[in-house]
Design a protein around this nucleic acid. Sequence first.
DNA 1: CTTTCACGCAACTGGTTGGTTGCACATCAC
DNA 2: GTGATGTGCAACCAACCAGTTGCGTGAAAG
Lengths: 114, 114
Amino acid sequence: MVPSEVFAALADPTRLEVLTRLASGGPATATELSASMPITRQAVAKHLAALDAAGLVERHPAGREVRYTFEPGPLGDLVKWVENVGDTWDRRLERLGRTFSTRGGGSPARAGRR
Amino acid sequence: MVPSEVFAALADPTRLEVLTRLASGGPATATELSASMPITRQAVAKHLAALDAAGLVERHPAGREVRYTFEPGPLGDLVKWVENVGDTWDRRLERLGRTFSTRGGGSPARAGRR
DNA sequence: CTTTCACGCAACTGGTTGGTTGCACATCAC
DNA sequence: GTGATGTGCAACCAACCAGTTGCGTGAAAG
């Protein structure tokens, strides 16, 4: 379970903004989004296609327009993956701590994790 | 605070594996890593440089070799960003729930978030 | 029926990137 | 000093990607 595809979908800043707009501003179409962005409709449509392929967005065709909605599922998987990596790292640190000090077993303090 | 740079660093599967190897296997050099991978040492070195630029890895020069260590800090920021986006989405859903049903205010059930 | 609007598809372009090979430099071992 | 080992730098290549323009199509509006 390695969501490098999701990471790739979030790698582009423009695409990231498209996603955050959908998340905070609600469902929208490609033309609506492109109206308040410095790129063309087709560029936005491509980004939406990429986000859709990554499962971060859902298509809702209605008549002649297509409305896109934010889909948080993959983000949850992503957080899970990150936490998993962090845990293996913690276990490594703990093992090292036990190796270098036979008593107490306190692992070194670490920043960045709640 | 938009860590699209961190996302970009994690976008490539090969680079992702380099990072996970450092996280689970402990510190290593570029040549050590490349020994058990299907790419050359220079390719690994490039990936390590990218990870270093993103703050996901730390260089530790020792004599003629350079040992790299995993750095979990940026991953924490990343999780924070994801949770922030998820929260704004939750607030949106709650607002909509209140609009469509005046009593109870129960927001729709949602998968993927703990 | 004609016009307008929203979308999709295809082709093209400039820039980025993952990967390679080749070489030069510094450090350790002898 | 000489040779082996580990890095870094530069050049190069193929593939990919974000973005554009142009055109065709199908649904709403008149």
